[in-house]
Design a protein around this nucleic acid. Structure first.
Lengths: 184, 184
DNA sequence: GTCTATACGATGATAGAC
DNA sequence: GTCTATCATCGTATAGAC
């Protein structure tokens, strides 16, 4: 792997583990086994490197979500597959966690990939819910966009509950609760 | 207000705005208009002061939630009141946001108030759901603890979606979606 | 492309005067 | 109780040699 690649990958890991504010160039360089000069040769600085890392993480997350949501099965089954897909729950969402970072929120450029990714997933889910409505699988009075927001929020909030308690149980409980409501 | 009080209040504000990692003693002292000596006289250091601040914020949040959840109305209405209660959505949850802070999660002492608060609110909601089941307001097949986790997760995740998009709209959409499911 | 040297403010804390 | 040194280390970046 090239030095530039190692820098991006190390940054992705650290952003996931410690967030933007908690990630220093020094820590990135150590993990990537690179020197100061390399980083400032390939990137303009910490924000520039972080942007590259965030973009890649966002793309990867969207691809994973798309794969599950556009897979086989009824609308309910596809949403269930999304909710139950394998996750490293205690690590949290590598994209969603960035929204708690003040420096990310303060920068439109750094926030953009986060916003776009979550928005795109929400649209996908909304479409699936509308599909399910037409098929009579969901009640006619539910709103696709709203349910999509609920589904996404349950996942993002599930990470919060799990990390608070130090156990994935709360995440799973939230998902089961939502699925029980979607079924009834 | 005493110096010690000002230190705690300033820390609470900064923890909410910037998290634990993003909050420096210097920033606290400036906001509290206090000197270095004062802080280290009243508290053992940054973690000790943060613990005092987090405990107070956690207590306050629990009191607010309890007030709404034990208020008047049917079970559904009380959960609706909790979900729709006035919030400064874009600021996020002062307690939940701490779960994204690596140093909070790494310390059982700092994490404890966060865990206990969310857990207590979840128990309250779970009891209300069970009450609603007995009254036939909710289907007999829903589980109180699971629905409580879903409610809490929708709120916590709603903050994430709102901050990602820079608008409270997604939070409100998630809440409306959940309420529509609870009604049907 | 990568390395070392250098810079300067911030971080988190201690010591001792008042 | 509060203030002002003082400290070692970290954070972020630039300059210039190789």
């Amino acid at each position: 792997m090239s030095t530039s690649e190692r820098l991006i990958e190390s940054t992705r890991e650290l952003l996931w583990e410690r967030g933007y504010v908690g990630t220093s160039p020094k820590a990135i360089l150590e993990r990537a086994d690179a020197g100061q000069g390399s980083m400032y040769h390939h990137f303009k600085g910490k924000p520039d490197l972080a942007l590259a890392a965030i973009r890649r993480t966002a793309e990867e997350l969207l691809a994973t979500a798309e794969a599950v949501l556009t897979g086989p099965g009824t609308p309910y089954e596809r949403i269930e597959a999304y909710l139950r897909r394998e996750r490293d729950v205690l690590r949290g969402c590598p994209v969603g966690r960035l929204t708690m970072d003040p420096d990310i929120i303060a920068s439109d450029e750094l926030r953009a990939p986060v916003d776009e990714t979550l928005d795109r997933i929400q649209e996908l889910i909304a479409g699936i819910v509308e599909e399910g409505k037409e098929q009579g699988q969901f009640g006619p009075r539910v709103n696709g966009e709203e349910i999509a927001a609920t589904v996404l929020a349950t996942v993002q909030g599930g990470y919060v509950l799990a990390r608070a308690s130090g156990s994935p149980a709360a995440f799973d409980a939230g998902v089961r609760g939502l699925l029980s409501l979607l079924r009834s």
